[in-house]
Write a protein that binds this DNA or RNA. Structure first.
Length: 455
RNA sequence: GGCGCGGUGGCAGAGUGGUCAUGCAGCUGACUGCAACUCAGUUAACGCCGGUUCGAUUCCGACCCGCGCCUCCA
């Protein structure tokens, strides 16, 4: 089986082939930790987590690194505003980030490098770039000399001249060329800083990824992922730094970028208030609903988040879990060849998760009408292929009974009410029975053929 | 101003030069004391205008609309 991925660098879908036959190296840009993360930040995590799961089925070793940017002017501003150190701020929000991502069923990466742990490596890379004639010092800043690199702009597929022609931003006058970007900048005494050959200062944003990739994954990696917004300038500049520091060695074999999540702010705020942070969404929906919503669109398409879409995702998962619950699992777990799975096949085609989800529905439908061994085989295939996307792995009973933000009536109280209602029905005391039903409904209890559920 | 992306049924969202996406919602039927749940079935789309073609939602061009990026500040 071959994985195909869309390579942003070449603009085409390509058969994936790692440098080493059995090992894949993947790096995904993580967050700058100065606040709770936005749902948009969750998309690359969910997308590349899915890719990570798929890669693990194909290669014996997959090394996945996702960084934490813990030095940045935004963090400095937040620290100053709150009277805290940047370490306190970044550590608090990094922990919150890990919690949020875990709620969305994301596997932890193998390596989580922190920028502040790699200042030495960054300084070394700057020195290399200076020595090789790709960087220069100006007014205590070290700048990357864009003109020293041929092919700059190739990842973003734009001409530098075009971009600069239309730029609306003032250019710092110490730059030799307007396109040059900062590798190192000076810190005042009050600002966080590290000693360097060029004085006390701090690194430019793009540098950390180059330095950490070099240290943990090598000069050339297989996959580099992140949001499309990072393509330029962040990834373009990473590419420039790393390539120039390594005398033109290839930096990344496959660049992958996910599109944005759009939020209809007005609509959202009407129904659910401030809705953009993952944490806030988790107050209204289980993490798996958010994950399912993210995966319901192809990662390279823009995705619309709305209360409608999330409610629909919730309903869809409820239905799928309901089907799973209706089919009891026997002791025998049939051996399933993933290679026969249409879900797997869809994922191998550049992570076509909408098709994969369609095939999950097809499996569920087939499973319902099947019986015996066939049914068990279908159930196993359904569960194993859904696991590739990190969904449908919970106990269906728990999923259907317990939902985020519910739970003021205990299970036993509900049971008692249901029994009382059934008795009233048998005695044809329909008024009493309907009263109980209405009361349960108001508390979010839905009666079903074989019992009840919260919803 | 420069460069680029997108407009699919009520909503979300795939895909294809000529038979189905799929899900949620809706509708019809079964079940029910009536409902709900469940089950079976079903309606409905391809921004606008030209062109290519036997045939275009799918290819080409113009137009309209929406969106993104333009360099420490995703």
């Amino acid at each position: 089986m071959t994985l195909f991925v869309y390579n942003s660098y070449t603009g085409t879908k390509e058969a994936f082939e790692p440098i080493k036959p059995d090992t894949v190296t993947m790096y995904v840009c993580g967050p700058t930790v100065y606040n709770r993360v936005h749902i948009g930040n969750a998309r690359p995590v969910v997308v590349f987590d899915t890719l990570y799961r798929v890669l693990k089925t194909l290669y014996s070793s997959v090394i996945y690194a996702r960084n934490i940017t813990d030095i940045d002017d935004k963090i400095m501003a937040a620290a100053k505003a709150g009277g805290e150190t940047i370490a306190a701020i970044s550590s608090r929000y990094a922990t919150a980030y890990f919690d949020d991502m875990a709620e969305l069923n994301n596997l932890p990466p193998d390596i989580i490098p922190y920028a502040t742990d790699h200042v030495g490596e960054m300084v070394a890379m700057i020195q290399t770039l200076i020595d090789k004639g790709h960087a220069y010092e100006a007014e205590s800043h070290i700048l990357f000399d864009v003109k020293s690199m041929s092919g700059y702009g190739k990842l973003a597929k734009r001409s530098l001249e075009d971009m600069l022609a239309g730029a609306r931003v003032d250019v710092a006058d110490y730059k030799k060329y307007a396109g040059d970007f900062v590798l190192w900048k000076p810190s005042t005494d009050e600002e966080p800083g590290w000693d360097s050959p060029w004085g006390r200062g701090r690194p430019g944003w793009h540098l950390e990824c180059s330095a950490m990739i070099e240290k943990h994954l090598g000069n050339t990696i297989d996959i580099h992922g992140g949001g499309i917004d990072l393509q330029f300038p962040h990834h373009e500049n990473e590419l420039a730094q790393s390539t120039c520091a390594h005398d033109g060695e290839p930096f990344v074999r496959y660049w992958m970028h996910n599109a944005y999540i759009n939020i209809d702010g007005e609509k959202m705020s009407k129904s659910l208030g401030n809705f953009r942070m993952v944490k806030d969404l988790l107050d209204h929906y289980p993490g798996e609903v958010l994950r399912f919503s993210i995966l319901s669109a192809h990662y390279r398409s823009e995705l619309n988040f709305s209360a409608d879409a999330l409610d629909s995702a919730q309903k869809t998962l409820d239905n799928l879990y309901g089907v799973l619950r209706s089919v009891e699992t026997t002791d025998v777990d049939p051996v399933i060849e993933l290679s026969d799975s249409k879900v797997y096949k869809a994922l191998l085609d550049d992570l076509n998760t909408p098709i994969a989800i369609r095939e999950i529905h097809a499996l569920a439908k087939a499973m319902k009408s099947a019986s015996g061994e066939t049914q068990q085989r279908l159930k196993s295939e359904l569960l194993k292929s859904a696991a590739l996307m990190g969904i449908l792995q919970q106990d269906p009973d728990e999923w259907l009974m317990v939902k985020a933000g519910e739970g003021d009536l205990s299970d036993i109280e509900v049971e008692n009410q249901v029994v009382e209602m059934q008795q009233a029905r048998q005695q044809k005391d329909y008024k009493h029975a309907d009263d109980i039903r209405d009361r349960l409904q108001q508390r979010g209890i839905i009666l079903t053929r074989d019992g009840w559920k919260r919803g």
